[in-house]
Write a protein that binds this DNA or RNA. Structure first.
Lengths: 245, 245
DNA sequence: CTTCGATGCGAACACTGTACGCACAGCGGA
DNA sequence: TCCGCTGTGCGTACAGTGTTCGCATCGAAG
């Protein structure tokens, strides 16, 4: 790993022995920093990202990043907004608003599961006054629910997406735990099952729930999918009752 | 602030000049540590809690805590479970399951807002295999939904409490931001309003939503309450449709 | 050629969580 | 009375963190 730094520790530093600065490498830019930060966050989780490691991956010193980003928190906000662009919201005015909302909700969920640190940062930052991508996401949602006929679209949006955020947060935390174990999800579930039964043995209804669900050996990811769409249908049914006419 | 340590830097340390170890102070115990940690978390937020500061508040050294607690993460788990005892779930079998669930959901929310770090830790830990208080909380919920007649109570619980967790997380993050500003919530809202309008001016439907809601000068806390109960009613309506008979 | 603003970065500061090993208290047994 | 033993407190130290500061160097403009 031969890093090409400006001032390499040479015996006799001089203009002639000094290496040319970064001959081909793309220059350090805000976009490159954010992109690489997201890659590190996705790969190794939120606590693995440090300014020094990020700088090293960009063939740069840690403090160089501060020329393009005011603080680490700001970098996280930029990362969140960058990732928010991946959420797809169908155009408003389609014939089937439920299908459109289901699509948007599912897109949010898959994005949150692809970047399991997203919900953590959202929980800290509070998603107030966020970046342009998040704004257009909100705008499209507002358009969608308005076109669907809701008199107070923001209330409906909050209802649906509080549910979506809550479920996604829980799932992302679970997937993070699974990933840290180094096993696949089915392996992890299988290894955890006996102790889970043991713990819930002292609680009647939890044990009953265990007996009801944990037997069938289906893919845990499938179970999570079903659980998500079930709850989403519940919320959408509740909203449909409030749609005028 | 005269700390009574065993080895105070005395000119000539001897058995006679040495102070008696902690004459009256209650001994350092796991419960005392968790209690004080919660107090610090409530007062100054999650990033203000460090083992050194916590030790200092207990008239102890930082590393002394590790005799009673394996790691800081474990301490956070203990704090979460301690706080989980504050959530009230009505007994199962009452005549009005909706009122009971509303009570439980509201209790979760107020607890989460009283301890705004709760949802952050939940998002990290994933609320899998947690402590006894969390277990009895889950057990009581399961009892409640089973008695209400839901054939798959866990699905209904997940639907309701994903919504509750999502909304509480968002609210807690908002309240944390407000608290950091040093202002009251109405002050903060008033100061933020012009820039919020300005930002959303470029987005048709967001601006429309602004015009619809932000005008009436009601207490923001009241608005949050209404928003929460509205979404909760939506979810409960959707669930009621799935109740057999 | 000179000057200047933008950029990279080494060193340093004030922290963090935690491992290690020593000092000491109380205690049960000889 | 003395002897170990176990449990507890904690000073020191290590590796790491985010961030500031000032210096070195670049490309471009005058």
């Amino acid at each position: 790993m031969s890093r090409s730094k400006t001032t390499e520790k040479n015996p006799i530093p001089s203009v002639w022995t000094r290496e040319q600065r970064r001959p081909d490498q793309p220059a350090l830019s805000r976009d490159a920093i954010v992109r690489e930060a997201i890659a590190m966050l996705d790969a190794d989780g939120i606590e693995a990202l440090s300014m020094r490691k990020l700088g090293a991956r960009l063939n740069a010193g840690a403090t160089s990043l501060y020329r393009h980003v005011a603080t680490k928190d700001e970098l996280m906000e930029l990362a969140v907004d960058e990732v928010a662009a991946e959420i797809h919201v169908p155009p408003a005015g389609g014939p089937d608003w439920r299908a459109a909302v289901t699509e948007a909700a599912g897109s949010f969920r898959t994005t949150a599961l692809r970047h399991p640190w997203l919900t953590l940062v959202l929980g800290q930052a509070g998603l107030a006054y966020l970046g342009p991508n998040y704004m257009t996401f909100s705008e499209r949602l507002a358009a969608l629910f308005t076109a669907a006929g809701f008199p107070e679209p923001s209330r409906a949006i909050d209802a649906v997406f509080s549910y979506v955020i809550g479920m996604s947060t829980t799932e992302a935390a679970w997937l993070t735990t699974v990933a840290r174990s180094g096993e696949t999800e089915p392996e992890f579930v299988a290894r955890l099952l006996p102790t889970a039964r043991e713990v819930s043995a002292g609680y009647d209804h939890l044990a009953a729930a265990d007996a009801r669900t944990a037997d069938q050996a289906v893919d845990p990811a499938r179970i999570r999918d079903d659980k998500f769409t079930y709850g989403l249908e519940v919320v959408l049914d509740g909203l449909a009752l409030r749609l005028p006419e």
